[in-house]
């Protein structure tokens, strides 16, 4: 038995989205009338152990983060390819298995290449 995916089911998600958004914003909005508000300069500077912040906080960061982001896109698309394959595996048979082995093998080649290039090595 497969549950029917009528739009009505998605209405629940939509309503929950709206509800949680209203919940979050209303609590913050109503809180304005109850909470303290006494800002002064020392309170409003960014935390740096009580000192005046030195330099811009948004400084340059390691290029590794970009590499991880690019690899994420590659592997996430792979995972998305695997989902429909896994769900319909029963109907597709051995052909699908061979196809997917090829796909995973090709991906492994790229994975090993990235590994050898030291992408996963955070420190030299």
């Amino acid at each position: 038995m497969v549950a029917p995916s009528v739009p009505q089911e998605y209405l629940g998600i939509f309503l929950l989205l709206i509800f949680s958004f209203l919940f979050g914003t209303l609590i913050l909005f109503l809180g304005r009338y109850f909470r303290l508000n006494r800002p002064y300069r020392d309170k409003l500077i960014a935390y740096e152990s009580g000192n005046e912040p030195t330099r811009e906080p948004r400084m340059r960061f390691s290029v590794k983060f970009y590499l991880i982001a690019i690899l994420f896109v590659v592997f996430d698309i792979e995972a998305i390819y695997l989902y429909p394959w896994a769900v319909t595996y029963d109907m597709l048979g051995v052909f699908a298995l061979v196809e997917m082995l090829l796909f995973i093998f090709l991906l492994l080649v790229a994975f090993v290449y990235a590994w050898k290039k030291g992408v996963f090595q955070w420190e030299k």
């Binding site: 809180g31 909470r35 300069r41």
Partner: peptide
């Protein structure tokens, strides 16, 4: 809920 909501000026 009753605590002050501090928003840093440079944020």
């Amino acid at each position: 809920f009753f605590k002050e909501d501090i928003i840093p000026e440079r944020a």
